[in-house]
Structure formats: C-alpha cells, structure tokens
Design a protein around this nucleic acid. Structure first.
Lengths: 148, 148
DNA sequence: CTTATACATTTGTATATACAATTGTTGTAA
DNA sequence: TTACAACAATTGTATATACAAATGTATAAG
C-alpha cells in the first residue's frame, strides 16, 4: 500500500502526516473487509460488536452503559442500535427489576446462531486482512500501537 | 493503550483479532483528536480533506471524480460534500465549459484563509497524536502499514 | 414526607452517509 | 442524423450517527 499512489499526489508528505493518512487508509481497508464479511448476515459492524459483547457475558445480561463501555467504537445512541437488534430478533431487552432506570439486554438463541455463522466469516476476513503480515510483525505492530 | 482494559474484557483475544481491534481503537483516537482540532472551524474531516486537495491543485480546478479519487476516505456523495463547502463559501463550482457533464471545483480565497488557520491546529493535533512515537518507530510503523 | 439532585435511558431533531435511480451530456456506430 | 451506449454528476430515499432535551426512577437531605 503506497500512500502517495493511493491518494494520487506527487507532493512529498511530512512523515507525521503521512503516517496518520497511512493509518486511515489501512483502517478503511479493514473496515471494508469486515463490512463485506458481515453484509450477507445483514448485521453492521457495531451490531456485531454488541452481539459479541453479549455472548461474552455468558448468560448474564448487560445494561446499556455496560455495552457502551465495552464497544470498540463508542456510539452516541446505543438505544437505537439495540432497537435494530431487537427487530431482528437477536437480542431481548427488559427493564431491570432491581433498578427500573436500567435495562437488561441479553442475546437470544437466534442471536447466538447468527453469531456462530458470522464467526467463521470473520476469521476468514481477519486472515485475509493480515495475510501479508507475519506473526513477528503482528507482535511488532502491537508494540507500536500500544504507544498511542 | 491496553486493548483488554479499554474494551473491559478479561478473555484472551487471539493475536489477529486483537491487532485489528487495537487498530480500530487507535484509529478512533486519531479521528477524535483531528475532529476536535477541526471543530472550532466548523469543518468536517472530509471537508478539510477536499479543501486540502483543492489547494494542492494550485489554481487548477478539480472535478468531482478527481476529488473522489484523491480523498483519503472515499465517499459515496461528494456532490453534497461540496454543496456544504459552497454554502460556507470555501469553494466554487462551475460547469466545465469543454465538457458540460463535468464540473470544475476550486478553492476560494476564503477557503485558503480558513485552511491556513486550520494548518497550525492540524500540525498541533498530529504532534499530540504521535507524541509518544519516536522517528524510528514512525518509520517502522510505515513499513508495517505498507504490508497491508 | 417532600423536594432536590443524580442517574439511566429514550426521544427529537439535525446532519451525515450509502446506494440506486435519474438527468443531462457526449461519443459513436449504423 | 439518429439511436444508443457510456459518462459525470445530481437527486431521492433509507439508514446511521451526533447531540441535546426530555422522561422516568432512585437516592439523599432537610
């Protein structure tokens, strides 16, 4: 991936700016790959993220603020994100009996089933995204990302 | 930046997946920084990108498809993005005389002025994003990003 | 017990973006 | 020259997201 070539400029970009642009370009590519993998299941990246969080709770439901805390990309409207998942039948939402201000969101069997199907597509997407990166390079990348 | 801590999970995430999540987290942070830097100027990241492309043309106007080609994050509606910039008085748009299907978009003096102001805010944001990264690490990062 | 404050979520509204269909223009083959 | 395909941008529409205000509930102070 050559930055100058992709954004079609002949100018020399300072290393700092170039790195940030580079970063965004790679991120776009990653997002495209993953969105494409999710498309057949009619589930967005954010929706998938919520489903995965709920599965990770093993049976224990989560409330909205917990979901928000754990999402990779925080959203300013998790209510409506959950609305969509309810419409699709992948999650349930009930008012928390011990604190009626809160809400308890849990994944349904149907939600677990779709997640299971998505899992293999996701692993495939991840592999294809990282196909040119060795394990050593992955570790190196993680070390660098830690510095941000 | 510790991935597990940020998304608040105790589970071990496989290195591939962890790297991708890590990547997204850093990207979110970068976007936040830059958006915050742009906020006082009431210009979005994409709008800023278009302005910078137009400035890079030195005087030569660009048409829509050229803009789209050169944008870091491609959009499926550059027309309306340009509409916003016209409303703000930062760009002009005329129908291309030699080919009336095309359009010629150019940056106005006002656009150049705001860009000049944004420039220093942007350099500051870039510096703060990369404050913990040495030059050597930057180069290392670029090498790794090239592999995607 | 009443009132005020903090909390958790939802709703309203504006804006942004994606995608497909449409419009208007140009090039080209008969 | 006409008819048709290709091109470039715009428009319509649905969906996504951001942000602030509103709703309903719990907690705490007097």
């Amino acid at each position: 991936m050559n930055v100058e070539q992709i954004i079609k400029t002949e100018k020399k970009i300072p290393l700092e700016r170039r790195t940030i642009i580079h970063f965004m370009l790679v991120n776009n590519k990653i997002n495209e790959s993953i969105s494409k993998a999710l498309k057949p299941f009619d589930v967005s990246l954010q929706q998938f993220n919520v489903l995965r969080i709920l599965r990770g709770q093993n049976e224990k439901p989560a409330n909205l603020s917990t979901l928000n805390e754990r999402m990779v990309t925080k959203m300013s409207n998790t209510t409506r994100l959950v609305d969509k998942l309810i419409l699709k039948g992948f999650v349930d939402r009930i008012i928390c009996p011990s604190n009626r201000r809160k809400v308890e969101i849990s994944i349904t069997t149907e939600g677990r089933n779709i997640l299971k199907k998505i899992d293999s597509a996701m692993i495939k997407a991840e592999k294809s995204i990282l196909e040119n990166i060795s394990k050593k390079e992955l570790e190196q990348l993680n070390t660098l990302l830690n510095k941000f």
